[in-house]
């Protein structure tokens, strides 16, 4: 708690909270990063589930840089938004649920990438049942994280 109080007392945090354009700019970047992340991972996961089978399964790897860019934008903009009101965000249950969902989505993505992209023998057009379960849960985790994020302002 001391750390959170210190964090939101930093000059950076006050700048985010008080500069007229900083907060909306960070929120816009956060929405843009979300669209990059959900767009690229959404298509990849849907392809693993069998959507648009004419897209080469291994080719969806080329979408990963966009997902990483979105993730990086959101880690940075999210951290900056967090500092502006650290105690409030940290004590929000919805915010905590969001972080748990992101952590689950992250672990899920690593396992899924290993299963689909690192096993060249299985690089055919159809993903394994295990990979499909991971893809479905990935979609649930990421959409859940976006929903939880939007609801922080409305919930305890």
């Amino acid at each position: 708690m001391d750390f959170l109080a210190w964090l939101q007392g930093t000059a950076f945090a006050s700048a985010v909270a008080e500069t007229i354009w900083a907060y909306p700019l960070l929120e816009t970047l956060h929405a843009l990063g979300m669209a990059m992340l959900l767009g690229s991972l959404g298509l990849t996961n849907l392809r693993v589930l069998g959507y648009k089978p004419e897209l080469p399964l291994l080719g969806t790897q080329e979408l990963l840089p966009l997902a990483w860019l979105g993730f990086t934008i959101n880690a940075a903009s999210g951290l900056a938004l967090f500092t502006s009101d650290a105690i409030y965000f940290f004590s929000s249950y919805t915010f905590r649920i969001k972080l748990v969902l992101i952590a689950l989505a992250g672990v899920n993505a690593v396992v899924l990438a290993h299963k689909v992209f690192r096993e060249p023998a299985r690089s055919g057009a159809v993903a394994s049942t295990g990979a499909k379960w991971l893809a479905a849960s990935s979609l649930v985790f990421w959409v859940g994280a976006a929903v939880a994020g939007r609801l922080i302002a409305y919930t305890p």
């Binding site: 843009l32 669209a35 080469p56 979408l63």
Partner: peptide
């Protein structure tokens, strides 16, 4: 917000592909 992700997420994929990103995807 979810509609935004669907709209901008898919437009971005289409436009970036037109601009030469992810060439393995037809």
């Amino acid at each position: 917000y979810i509609g935004l992700a669907m709209l901008v997420g898919s437009i971005m994929l289409i436009d970036l592909r037109l601009l030469g990103f992810a060439r393995s995807l037809p």
